[in-house]
């Protein structure tokens, strides 16, 4: 049995109450969504806090309507929302291979957006970290992946939902001690495996909202990992486009799980707006994306291979957007 550290559990009923508890928790706190990420890290003794504030009992976080998804909505609930999937079909495939069906039952949207960065040196028990040597993100002096880095952590961003919301132009509604604010999700992340994003500690993700014209975007999320269940992405590419015939009118690209945050590839996308989405264009975009991705050895597969796969996944995403039949290997049917 793994031992969870001692903590007090608060179960507030409203966002305001939760923020109040957070402000009072001067010795440190964490918000608890579904628990599938936080409690694992706690069992490993990673950056634990004496107060845990559950967000599972707050009705305002559970709302889901017309492109707006509450931060506390479970991934399984999104998966079952036929209207949402009809409007934004890219989420169907994103969700049905995200973690595992059991993780999706309790895991929440906000939990997936905020999933802690992961690294082979970090996601270890206290015993293992003593044996392996500690890392920058958990009480160690320096990063184990990029040796000598004493101020920046290179752990890998591993959520799947954020890149898709990003390419669909999603915004995030945050509630904090100073009231609410809204920002584009693409502006949410901050390139550091420890800091990770611009959320203040007390702030709570109330919802993610998609603009109504996102329904007319064509989008694709191509995730690369070795098992179709359980695994976090080794890398992924999210793309969306608005097409005028075969001409790219708008294009958004995210290279995911190749850095500490999902990378918003605006320069590459801008370069190809107005182009025809031909095979040559797809190859060129894929090559640009591949070049731009600079994964490090924080996950299972070698960084060079992951980098190459960024190109492959980009091409697949764009071909899907174009309407090609993308051949993803299907599982063999059990006899």
């Amino acid at each position: 049995m793994m031992i969870l550290p001692e903590f007090e559990l608060a179960r507030p009923r409203s966002v305001d109450e939760a923020i109040g508890v957070a402000r009072a928790a001067t010795d440190g706190f964490d918000y608890l969504g579904g628990g599938t990420d936080l409690l694992c890290n706690y069992k490993w003794g990673l950056n634990t806090n004496p107060t845990v504030i559950s967000l599972r009992h707050i009705g305002e976080l559970q709302r889901m309507a017309d492109g707006s998804v509450g931060g506390g909505v479970t991934l399984a609930a999104i998966e079952k929302d036929a209207d949402f999937l009809h409007d934004f079909p890219v989420f169907r495939r994103t969700l049905d291979r995200l973690a595992s069906p059991l993780i999706r039952q309790t895991g929440t949207l906000a939990g997936n957006i905020l999933v802690d960065t992961r690294c082979i040196w970090l996601n270890q028990s206290l015993f293992a970290r003593k044996a392996l040597g500690k890392c920058l993100k958990a009480d160690g002096p320096e990063c184990r992946v990029v040796k000598g880095s004493i101020d920046r952590c290179y752990a890998n961003y591993s959520g799947d939902m954020a890149p898709v919301f990003m390419v669909l132009g999603g915004t995030m509604r945050l509630a904090g001690p100073d009231g609410e604010r809204t920002l584009l999700l693409r502006d949410f992340f901050a390139l550091d495996g420890i800091r990770r994003n611009v959320k203040q500690k007390e702030e709570i993700i109330v919802s993610l909202d998609l603009p109504s014209d996102a329904k007319t975007l064509r989008a694709s999320y191509q995730k690369f990992r070795v098992r179709e269940a359980w695994d976090f992405p080794e890398l992924a590419v999210a793309a969306s486009a608005r097409m005028d015939g075969d001409r790219i009118e708008e294009l958004s690209l995210v290279a995911n799980a190749v850095a500490s945050i999902p990378l918003w590839m605006d320069e590459i996308a801008a370069k190809y707006r107005g182009e025809t989405l031909s095979d040559a264009t797809i190859d060129a975009i894929a090559e640009d994306m591949r070049k731009a991705a600079k994964p490090v050895k924080a996950t299972l597969l070698p960084p060079g291979y992951r980098k190459a796969m960024v190109g492959v996944m980009t091409a697949r995403a764009l071909r899907e957007i174009r309407g090609d039949v993308v051949t993803e290997k299907q599982s063999g049917e059990a006899a």
Binding site: L9, L32, G35, C40, L102, Q105
Partner: peptide, 13 residues
Amino acid sequence: GEPALGCLTLALE
């Protein structure tokens, strides 16, 4: 009625 992981669900919840 919904499946839940007993190891990652706090009993109080």
